[in-house]
Design a protein around this nucleic acid. Structure first.
Lengths: 223, 223
DNA sequence: TCAGGCATCAACCGAAAGATTGACCGTTCC
DNA sequence: GGAACGGTCAATCTTTCGGTTGATGCCTGA
C-alpha cells in the first residue's frame, strides 16, 4: 500500500525498459500476454514459464521488474505461495496477479502474499499495460471490479469465522449431518449445533444450506 | 458424431487454408490464439470477436471453416446457444469449443448444441492445431481430459436428473428452503419434496446438503 | 393402446435441525 | 485479576426436513 522508496531495488526500471516475467500454465494465455505486451515499446518480456516454481526461480535472479502471475496452476505450487516467496526477498520484483476469478478469498490471499496488483484476464490491453507501469513504479494496481469488491468487503465487517467454526462449516458443505460431524470431530451434537448457531449469526443466514451458499460465495469453504 | 459428406459444405477447406473465426471475451486469449494459430501455415484467422452475437453473425457468412468458441461470455448470449445457432444452418462451419472448465454439464451442453469438439484452454499449441484440423475435416475432436470424463460418465449410469430436478437442486445449492423453492417455482412444497426424494435416490444420498455436495462434485450444479 | 417416465399435489409421521437458555473451563489481553 | 472470547456441553422446545403412500394428468415410445 505504501509507495516504495527508490533505493535498494536493483530491479528498478530506472529509465530503461520494464522487464517482464510471465507465469501462466496456459500456453495460449502466455502467447497472448506476450503478443499484447510486446507491442508496448517500453516493455520487454524476458521469459514466460508454465509453472509457479519456475517463476520463483527466475524471479530470484536480477533482471526482472514485474512478474505477471496467474493464481491457478496445474502443478504443486499455487500462485499465492509463489507470490509470497518472490516478494519475501530484498529487491524483489513486483508481482502483478492476473487471473480469471474475482472471489474474495483469492483476492485477499494474493494481497496478503504481497502482490502489488490484481487484474482480471478480461482486462483490455491498455488497462493491462497501464497496470504494469503502475506496478513497476511500486504503486498498487487493482482492476476496477476488484477494487469494488474490496470496498464491499470493508463495508461489511464480513464473516471472520473461527478456525473451529470453519472446520465445522466445511464438513457441512461436504454434506455431513450434525451427528456425522460430531463423530468426525469427537464432539457432542450440542457443540456442533452451538458452532452452527454462531456461524449462522456471523453469516447472517438461518439454515445450513444457506450458510454453505454464503460461505462458498465468500470463499470461506472449498467447492 | 457422423462424418460429414463432402457435398453441400461451401465452407469446406478443399485444398485451401483452414479459415478460422475466434470468439472469446478475453482480449488476451484472442491475441494468444491468434499468435499460436497463425504460426501454422495452413491456418488463416479471418476474424476474432469478443461476443457470442458477433460470432453468430460472422459465422453466417461464407468464408469460415472452423469457429473456436469460448463457453463463457460476459454479455447476454452464452456459448452453447451461439453454438446451436451457428450449427443449425446448412453448410455451417464447425464449432470447436475452447474453455477453461471441464464440468459434465458444460461438456454435455456444448455437445448437444452441436459442437464438433471440446478443448481445454490449457492445451498445448500442437494439440490445439491438431484439433482444428480434425474439426475442419468434420471429425469430432475431444481433449483427452474431456474424453476421460465422458467415458466416466458412460460407465457410471450417473445422475441424469431431469430438467426440473436440476432446477430444484440448483436452488437447494443456493441455500433456499423447500418453502422458498416452492414459492420461486410456483409449486407446492409437496412437489418440491417429491423432486428431492427422486434426486436423493438418483444421487445415492439422503439429505439436501449431501445432495448438493454430490451434485457439485459431478458438475450438475454451479458453485 | 398401454406402459413408463415426468411433473404435479396431499396427508401423515418420525427424525433431524434450529432456537433458546444456561453453564464450565481455558486462553488472551488489558 | 477480571473481562472477553473460544470451545465445550446439557436440556428443552419448535420448526423444518425427510420418508412414505397414494393419486392425477401429460407425453413419448414400443
Amino acid at each position: 500500500m505504501t509507495d516504495a522508496p527508490y533505493t535498494g531495488s536493483p530491479a528498478a526500471p530506472e529509465g530503461g525498459r520494464i522487464r517482464l516475467l510471465l507465469a501462466d500454465d496456459h500456453p495460449v494465455v502466455r502467447a497472448g500476454l506476450r503478443a499484447v505486451l510486446e507491442t508496448e515499446p517500453d516493455f520487454e518480456v524476458v521469459a514466460d514459464v508454465p509453472t509457479a516454481e519456475e517463476a520463483v526461480a527466475l524471479a530470484a535472479r536480477p533482471g526482472v521488474d514485474v512478474v505477471l502471475m496467474d493464481l491457478q496452476f496445474a502443478g504443486e505450487m499455487r500462485g499465492p505461495q509463489a507470490t509470497a516467496e518472490i516478494t519475501a526477498r530484498d529487491g524483489a520484483p513486483r508481482v502483478l496477479v492476473l487471473t480469471t476469478y474475482d472471489t474474495d478469498a483469492d483476492i485477499l490471499a494474493a494481497i496478503e502474499a504481497g502482490a502489488t496488483g490484481y487484474l482480471l484476464k478480461d482486462a483490455p490491453p491498455e488497462e493491462l499495460a497501464a497496470a504494469v507501469r503502475t506496478a513497476a513504479a511500486g504503486k498498487s494496481a487493482l482492476a476496477p471490479a476488484v477494487a469494488l469488491r474490496l470496498m464491499d468487503r470493508m463495508r461489511t465487517p464480513a464473516a471472520a469465522l473461527s478456525r473451529r467454526e470453519t472446520e465445522v462449516l466445511q464438513l457441512v458443505a461436504d454434506g455431513l449431518s450434525n451427528a456425522q460431524i460430531s463423530k468426525r470431530l469427537f464432539l457432542s451434537q450440542a457443540t456442533v449445533k452451538s458452532h452452527l448457531v454462531h456461524i449462522y449469526t456471523k453469516l447472517g443466514v438461518d439454515s445450513r444450506t444457506s450458510a454453505v451458499a454464503a460461505a462458498t460465495a465468500q470463499g470461506i469453504v472449498r467447492r
